[in-house]
Simulated assay, not measured.
Amino acid sequence: MRKRSHGSRAVVAVTAAAVLGAAGCDVVGGDGPEASDSRTRRATPSPTPVWDSSPASIAAVGDSITRGFDACSVLSDCPEVSWATGGSAEVNSLAVRLLGASKAATHSWNYAATGARMADLPAQMALAATRKPELVTVMAGANDACRDSTDAMTSVVDFRAGFEEAMRTLRRAAPKTQVYVASVPNLKRLWSQGRTNVLGKQVWKLGICPSMLGDADALDAAANLRRETVQKRVEDYNAVLREVCAKDPRCRFDGGAVYAYRFGTDQLSPWDWFHPSKNGQARLAEIAYRQVTARSA
């Protein structure tokens, strides 16, 4: 009986010690090191995301597409309908969608130039950087592929060097500026859509993108090879844009969205059947807005 009692007291003692030990952990509560660490972890604010989907200012660089060339009248720029910075209600540009119409008029700048190639982008970036914009849009490369011949197209090596230099130029002056990079459009689709229009083909004969659009009705082996060569070069350019952009945490490539867009004749200028019409500019603005405001690239 006494042995049983002694054993019971031992069990009670062990149990009490365990309870007190547990209670001791609870007592430490807010003052113990573990709780302090936990509080510190909870109090630490989450880091500011690298990509801000609501930039407060925008600058655009690139070529005639971003200048709205031939969208309003023949052989003239029309930046008012630019997909990137235009104020036209018909287009509802990226700047208007992000900033609102009134703010877009004072906080967006268009440094693109008709006829520009990738080699011209560093100088445009230098100008854009002076504004310290929160976002720069890039659309360039079509003129590098649209040359008098396939031999005259910008090499992939030079295209890469030009884009890398443009990014370095921006980063030296505006290290925190975000960059949205649109892919080079599908020039072969441009040929397949535009060649259905007799007037369009006559305009092309004036020298619009000869490497792809020259002799538009020819379907012989040489013509097909020429077009495939241009198309491959465009795809290589897009690979460069993707790769260079991926190295910069504040750069977002469109993933080939512009290249993949299945545009029709309604999206082409009625004056040259090459540049985007106002409708085409609006579609480019839609694509850009989706990419810029997406939670991830």
Rank of each mutant, 00 (worst) to 15 (best):
A84F: 01
A174Y: 08
V156Q: 13
L187G: 10
P175D: 00
A145V: 08
R290N: 14
S5Q: 03
A221T: 14
V50Y: 00
N110R: 11
Q267D: 15
S73V: 09
Q281N: 14
D236K: 07
A288V: 03
D70M: 08
A260R: 12
G207T: 04
A297T: 06
S54V: 03
D52K: 08
A112G: 07
E164G: 11
R226T: 04
T154H: 01
S149C: 03
T15E: 10
A140L: 15
Y259M: 08
L187E: 12
A112Q: 03
D120F: 01
A129D: 11
P47S: 10
L99K: 09
G264C: 06
A123K: 12
A84H: 04
M139W: 07
E165S: 14
C245N: 09
R195V: 13
N92L: 02
G200I: 11
S88L: 04
A112N: 05
M212I: 08
L190W: 06
P249K: 05
E80C: 03
D148N: 12
D248N: 14
T196Y: 01
V27K: 06
I287C: 09
S38G: 10
D37R: 12
W273L: 14
V258A: 11
P47V: 06
D254I: 07
A104S: 14
G32I: 03
P33N: 02
H275Q: 06
S183N: 09
V28K: 08
T169W: 01
V240N: 10
A182R: 09
P47G: 05
V203E: 05
V258Q: 09
A116H: 09
R233K: 15
Q231R: 06
A222H: 07
S102I: 00
V19Y: 03
T293H: 06
K247H: 05
G141S: 13
G207P: 12
T44F: 06
V28R: 10
P175K: 09
T293F: 05
A112M: 05
G255A: 02
M153N: 08
V28I: 07
V28T: 10
V157Y: 01
I58A: 11
G115I: 13
L284N: 07
R189V: 06
T130M: 11
D70L: 04
F253S: 03
T229W: 02
E243G: 13
R227G: 11
S82M: 10
P45G: 00
Y259G: 01
A129K: 11
H6M: 11
D158T: 10
C25P: 00
V138C: 03
N224W: 04
P45C: 01
P175Y: 02
R160A: 15
A119R: 13
N224I: 15
I208N: 05
R283N: 08
R168T: 14
V91A: 04
H6D: 06
A223C: 09
A282D: 04
A13D: 13
L99A: 10
Q124A: 10
T177H: 12
E90I: 02
G29H: 11
G264P: 05
V96M: 03
V19A: 15
F263N: 09
A13N: 10
R42C: 05
N197D: 15
V179G: 04
D120A: 14
A112T: 09
W204I: 01
S73R: 08
D31R: 15
L199M: 11
R252C: 14
